[in-house]
């Protein structure tokens, strides 16, 4: 019997491109966030409110990932920031190569913060490094408070957690305290923000945190 010893990571190709991306982002002094969540938890709304609140403080560029349509890119473009849409044609996550190509299409260098909005999915994006500084996971109150326990890999890999749609708490059967407790049981170092993109509660604190991360 003949055996070839391989011992190689299956996603090594993605990881290598992600490392190249990371070096490019570092050279440009960018603070880069990979936004991950299930569909409809408010990633795009959070980007919109963040742009609105920080337009006099720093500049943002956005890479949007969706299975279909450029609807999100159109929403973000209305705020006058550079945005590139990736349409994955069915793929459930962004890969580093897609982000590299999309980043090359951003026509300006005048921004300090890059948002990469991943495809709405709490499973697959966890395994794919894109070259970001950190992952931000978003959970909305309408999804229930058990999500961190159901998708531990995503919460383990993230650095920050946004609990969004807190204005809806009176109407849904969800405890933000329990989301926090569950998330911290998986990842005690998570930085947690509670936000509403409808009434802007918590947005200033979130924007202040981003500002503190900018590499000037």
């Amino acid at each position: 019997m003949s055996v070839i010893t391989v011992e190689r990571k299956v996603l090594e190709k993605n990881d290598a491109i992600a490392q190249q991306n990371r070096e490019v982002f570092k050279k440009k002094n960018l603070f880069t966030m990979n936004l991950v969540s299930s569909p409809g938890s408010g990633k795009t709304s959070l980007i919109e409110r963040t742009i609105h609140h920080t337009k006099n403080k720093f500049d943002i560029a956005v890479i949007e990932g969706d299975v279909q349509t450029s609807l999100d890119a159109e929403r973000v473009a209305a705020y006058g920031v550079p945005v590139v849409q990736i349409i994955t044609q069915g793929a459930c996550h962004l890969e580093a190569g897609l982000v590299r190509d999309a980043f090359g299409q951003i026509e300006t260098n005048n921004f300090e913060v890059l948002f990469i909005e991943n495809v709405g999915n709490l499973v697959c994006p966890a395994g794919y490094d894109l070259g970001e500084d950190l992952k931000v996971v978003i959970v909305s109150t309408t999804e229930g408070d058990d999500k961190p326990l159901k998708y531990p890999a995503m919460f383990r890999n993230a650095s920050a957690l946004i609990i969004n749609k807190i204005d809806l708490v009176p109407y849904v059967n969800c405890s933000t305290a329990l989301i926090e407790k569950n998330a911290l049981s998986i990842n005690p170092s998570l930085k947690i923000f509670k936000t509403s993109c409808t009434n802007d509660e918590g947005i200033a604190e979130w924007c202040g945190w981003i500002e503190s991360k900018i590499k000037r």
Partner: peptide, 8 residues
């Protein structure tokens, strides 16, 4: 998530 061996 890795490939360990290929057996021929």
């Amino acid at each position: 998530l890795k490939v360990d061996e290929i057996e021929l």
